[in-house]
Amino acid sequence: MFDSESFQSAWQIIKTEIPLAIWETFYVTVLSTFFAIIIGLPLGVLIVAGDNGRVLKIPKLILKAIDVIINLLRSVPFLILMIVVFPLTRLIVGTVVGTAASVVPLVIAAFPFVARLVESSLREIDPNIIETAQSMGATPFQIVIKVMIPESVPSLISNATIAITTVLGYSAMSGIIGGGGLGKIAINYGYYRYQYLVMIFAVLFLILLVQIFQSLGTFLSKKFDKRLKQN
């Protein structure tokens, strides 16, 4: 399998296709996570702020609806979700294949996950601190913007890292049905054409990307945590 001829051809593919694939995977992951945060962060905030009407008075029915929708989306396996949202993807991007098209299902799969992560970060805040802000006459909006989010920044960063690495995994999976990037290379060459070497390389680069995101996330989370004495 690893004779010099097949090695040569594998190397050729790696050289010509991998750099673009890395870039595609990178931007799809970052873009999808970004949109997922845009949608998921406010939802997570609403869930925690609305809990028992402590910060925001949100009707119970709305909170329940958010909860159910998040659970629903979270329970559909990603590959099936991708197919289910084809009409929406076509509506937004104009096509269902290609790198850009995979952003839509990725965002839909990731925002409920992000909302849950945000929820868990915000729940870590000492409720006494929120109450102190209330005792000073802070508005609900000020409590969210000036207390809840800033106080949980370290935890939000480490959860964003979890989100981005998860999205990276999903984006690789999207290679099965039309998505681009390292996932597509791994499946096309490894599964359909038995070019295992190419697949191994694609996987190695996926691992490398996860490592980079994770290390960066851990570094930033620590850097921003003023509770740690060494700061």
């Binding site: 000492d126 006494n128 102190t132 802000a133 005792s135 000073m136 802070a138 508005t139 000036k146 920044v153």
Partner: peptide
């Protein structure tokens, strides 16, 4: 009215991600 009635607590309840100056600035920002 609550700006006229301040409160301090057993657990201090300072904002841990703000330095001392910014903690004191907090009610002014509000």
């Amino acid at each position: 009215e609550r700006r006229n009635i301040s409160m301090i607590f057993q657990g201090f309840n300072l904002l841990m991600q703000r330095n001392c100056l910014k903690n004191v600035l907090f009610p002014l920002e509000l």
